[in-house]
Design a protein around this nucleic acid. Structure first.
Lengths: 246, 246
DNA sequence: GCGCGACATTGATACGGATCAAACACTCGA
DNA sequence: TCGAGTGTTTGATCCGTATCAATGTCGCGC
């Protein structure tokens, strides 16, 4: 599990080649990147960074899932981002990590030493352009999540999370999300509660409630079946965006 | 009120010259910007953009305060950002607005037609670099706000908002926030509730409670006095960051 | 000066989600 | 096979915030 059957040293073979921060780079630019990059792996459950840590590198997630989160002194924690393959960790121009990063599954990172990477950003506009685009997308997602955290009920929060995971899973398979789709939750109930600003008991109860209402079916604790996508969307409280079918 | 005693056409005189998206530009680059820029003003309470609107321009806030918010079908509203002088509105490469933008006070925008601006971004790296930096900062703020929305109590939320406004106000005067500082709340109770994910009644009650606890004093409805800054910080639930005194 | 409208405060009550507690399900190693 | 550990479900109760409602305050136009 987790072993890759491609030569990771070759950017041309990289599974996130077309989506990551390097996606706009031309062959010559990739060669420079290949010189300063190296891989690191983390096992499920391992911390990758603690808030305040000195960061010697920035990185792209190549495989696996990690979480970005914040913890208060008394232990209350809030997840502030979910890092999936192709997502970027770290920020040029900043010495220390702003949030905790934890591997949820086994994770492989493609790391770049920070200083050379920063230098590269000024000489290679394609990297900065792509990073800007990715950061703007993340800012939009973060703002959308603020609505979930601030205004949605527990039931709507759960439905919103399920829908996000469902859409992501469909995108990964290069399919449209559809009625009858099946996917696995990558997160424990506790991780879901940290994401949604709820307790794990409430998460559990609301998932049970959605099952009783036949909005979703469960196979074991993690596998989810969505019999009717529009029903799930209705439960999120968002307006129906028909735009996806086009 | 709102009339500026400077020639706005001259970027050299612009009050946000050193912080806005154009702050890295050299004189020659500013000349290009001056060709495509124009000013628009909005009165307090006026909408600037609705989510979904076609955007023909991107802009910098020159003076005044605006809010960025999202509304659900049933009317629940969440503010997702507060736009202050030098903040940027819009996003290169996107046709439509993602959120509602409303002027809270009288607002002046420095607008750039979107297409020429996008073109400029590829030819003038300084703009993209600065925009990346600003966007990364906003992403960090958005993520910090997610902790407030997801995990803080009503009292902590109010204290967090007061502290943010206090710090911003101090920064505007180029002072450090200090004991005994006085500032005005730019927002109504309702706008605060939209920001904090509360009802306006709860906002009112918690402000009264903080006053009874002598964490703050009020002069009228809007003017706030902070007798002891550390007391206010303690009420936010955040760890005390001594870093500011250095 | 009066009355209106916008904004704010305060009170009474309801309800959603947190908290405390117990039991269940599954995996893994002895 | 059993027992421990981890993650999950479910129940009982409590508390914080929402909701519904009334009253208060200030500024402004008539």
């Amino acid at each position: 599990m987790g072993s890759l059957h491609v030569d990771l040293k070759d950017c041309g073979q990289c599974p996130i080649r077309h989506r990551a921060v390097c996606s706009r780079c031309e062959p010559k630019e990739l060669e420079v990147l290949e010189d300063i990059k190296y891989y690191r792996t983390y096992e499920a459950g391992q911390p990758i960074l603690w808030a305040g840590d000195h960061m010697e590198f920035v990185a792209s997630v190549v495989t696996g899932i990690a979480t970005l989160s914040q913890t208060m002194e008394d232990g209350r924690t809030q997840m502030v981002g979910l890092l999936l393959p192709s997502d970027f960790i770290g920020r040029p121009g900043r010495e220390t990590a702003a949030f905790d990063v934890v591997a949820v599954s086994d994770v492989t990172l493609c790391c770049f030493r920070r200083k050379p990477f920063e230098h590269l950003m000024t000489s290679t506009p394609h990297i900065g352009q792509r990073l800007l685009e990715m950061t703007l997308d993340e800012l939009d997602s973060a703002r959308e999540w603020m609505l979930v955290l601030g205004r949605k009920t527990a039931r709507e929060k759960i439905a919103s999370l399920l829908l996000i995971v469902a859409r992501r899973d469909a995108a990964l398979r290069k399919q449209l999300p559809s009625d009858g789709m099946v996917f696995d939750l990558p997160l424990t109930r506790e991780a879901m509660s940290d994401y949604l600003g709820l307790t794990l008991e409430t998460v559990s109860r609301q998932i049970s409630a959605l099952r009783k209402s036949e909005v979703v079916e469960l196979e074991g604790k993690r596998r989810v079946i969505v019999p009717d996508l529009d029903t799930l969307i209705a439960e999120t409280g968002d307006d129906v965006d028909g735009g996806l079918i086009a």
